[in-house]
Write a protein that binds this DNA or RNA. Structure first.
Lengths: 152, 152
DNA sequence: CCTCTTGGTTCGCACTACGAACATAGTTGT
DNA sequence: ACAACTATGTTCGTAGTGCGAACCAAGAGG
């Protein structure tokens, strides 16, 4: 029963399994540095600039109440800091600490390395094609700007 | 800064963001039916056949101890059942209940629908190309056989 | 038999995520 | 000014996730 299904995989299955691989790579990269994937994600977002809680909630796709905890824990580990927003005294700006910046860099590098290894079976041209197609999907769906290169 | 970076996205970023979209779709599909993504995943795996705990652990990429809890909770919801393995009395076979089978079907359909909508901006040929490229990645990395069509 | 391995569970821990309710601080209309 | 509304975060309770270490019981091998 579907034991030798070398036949064409459907797109949905391919996407789901790829996502599975990416997640695993991401999680592994985090584990190398004592980070949960969520904390790693948070650090990566913050490398661009400080964010407010509400903004983070939107970018990461989490409820505000979920974010309080994530930031709490990450702050407790000394990776992130809550700063007062000068122009709105109820708002807060979450920023990387120095240690957080270093962690972000290392996590980002490790995650990139691992994810970049996934398409090892594709040549340069195929990678280019794949990138273009996925980029289209990502942009069409307005995927949040997660995981932009820190040095950009 | 990098505000109008319409430039070529790198492959890693494209993969990570795509994975983000797929996860969100998956989670949403689960929520529609009162399932967590993990429980949904479990049901999908079990549509093929019953599995032992160890097998599940390997397929889902979880520690055995994590699995006990997942199966416990899913069992508590009446979706899954632990059966004795006739040929090994310490082993267990996790199987779908009738309700579990129905849920699996509905969850699978919902997840497919949502994931299938992601590449709405691609035409048939592009979808074919994308599928082929991802399939290659998936097979090269021996991604677990998650999310195979139930009816296969 | 006595070991060694294997299949699962238990336990304690840290973390994830949500919605409802809440407190404040801005904002608007009058 | 002042009341009414809105936006920003936090708190609280609940359910679920995931791990490693320790453990138990049943098979396998010498």
């Amino acid at each position: 029963m579907a034991k030798f299904e070398a036949g064409p995989m459907n797109l949905v299955t391919a996407l789901v399994r790829t996502s599975f691989l990416v997640d695993a790579a991401y999680t592994q990269a985090g584990r190398e540095h004592g980070l949960t994937p969520q904390q790693g994600q948070l650090l990566c977002v913050l490398t661009a600039r400080p964010y407010g809680m509400g903004e983070l909630s939107a970018v990461l796709g989490l409820a505000k109440s979920s974010l309080t905890g994530l930031v709490d824990r990450t702050e407790r580990h000394g990776l992130v800091r809550r700063e007062d927003d000068p122009r709105d005294s109820r708002a807060v700006r979450v920023a990387l600490t120095e240690l957080g910046g270093e962690m972000a860099e290392r996590f980002y590098a490790a995650a990139c390395r691992r994810v970049d290894e996934l398409p090892f079976g594709l040549d340069a041209e195929q990678r280019g094609t794949l990138t273009a197609l996925l980029e289209r999907v990502v942009l069409d769906n307005e995927a949040p700007e997660v995981f932009t290169e820190p040095g950009a």
